[in-house]
Design a binder for these strands. Sequence first.
DNA 1: GTATGCTTGTTGAATAATAGACACATATGA
DNA 2: TCATATGTGTCTATTATTCAACAAGCATAC
Lengths: 193, 193
Amino acid sequence: MPRNEDRRVKRTKKAMTEAFAKLLLEKPLNNISVREIAETADINRGTFYLHYRDVYDMAEHLQNEIFDKFNEIVDNHEPKNSSDYLFPLLAELFNLLSENAALAKVLISKNGDAVFVDKLKQVIREKCFVNIREELNIKNDDEFDYFYNYIVSGCIGICSAWLNNGMREEPKEMALLAERLIKNSALTYGDLD
Amino acid sequence: MPRNEDRRVKRTKKAMTEAFAKLLLEKPLNNISVREIAETADINRGTFYLHYRDVYDMAEHLQNEIFDKFNEIVDNHEPKNSSDYLFPLLAELFNLLSENAALAKVLISKNGDAVFVDKLKQVIREKCFVNIREELNIKNDDEFDYFYNYIVSGCIGICSAWLNNGMREEPKEMALLAERLIKNSALTYGDLD
DNA sequence: GTATGCTTGTTGAATAATAGACACATATGA
DNA sequence: TCATATGTGTCTATTATTCAACAAGCATAC
């Protein structure tokens, strides 16, 4: 993968992605044609095929791209002690969200992909919550499951509200808010700070 | 003039124009560099020179383009009888404005070009107001001058308010509003309807 | 059936935009 | 005075995108 893409490539990919997201807000994936994407993105239809095989290929690539970036961020944050760990991680995640706003908005929405969202949840559970569970000493599996799902679903709720409100707050502000809510939830089981 | 420009040309010209307008909102023309425009527009600096000689050449071309379109619209509307004449003309003019919003905004603003605005006013006076003057039978030159300036300056005020409010109204709504105000002003001298 | 219209992949040739370099000018400050 | 930095205008080779056309597939309606 050439990490240094030509300006032109970045531009057309961005245009295509936004067109795709826009269309996906209106209708399901299988009703979206290459022609529509090209037209909405204001690019030549042939150009589409220089990048993707078809609409499904495009959807897959876009999901994988975001998923990879998501994983990379999570992996780059060693969960040493939870009080210093949470905020930097959240800040970068909200950044990622804002950089992919149009697409993220639609992935959460009704035409979005619930399977994809679940994949992300799973990552968080396995990589981020393991330590927290130990710290809080939650032994009961069910109890942990409720606790974990409450927080993650809550965060997704915050995200979709932010995206739908036109993202008037800075990513960092959102990270701060989320951190506060999460830590308060953790107080149910003891103090993280 | 090739009326059918390549998509790419339209795109880069649009990007350059918007970058130019954005910069001109912050500082006067002589403080704007080619480098800045290219950077803001996210294009290669060399690309700029494929279209314009320098920043002044660009400014001149942009003004002329708008001026020509403005003239074309005015010329395409024969002022037969004033009641059917006004609205279609205004609608097209507000359309032109919305299509060139970023640039228009700055041309009216403090870093804008008062000479340019005066050129437009002159066109309106000579091509649009001649008939109205006859219809209303305004003999006194000074009186006509006040009448004409009141209306035209008023319309410019509407335009700049619209542009600064984020253009929430449709061009046609604005045309309707302007028409009503103009016709009411005309009532000072008789009835245009 | 077949006519009609629309989407799809794919092509070839033309062209606009790219990165990167260059010499030159101008300013700024040590 | 020399060094450093920044903007300018121009160039070359390379590449991404464009337009226009094509045959093929698939539906709908007549």
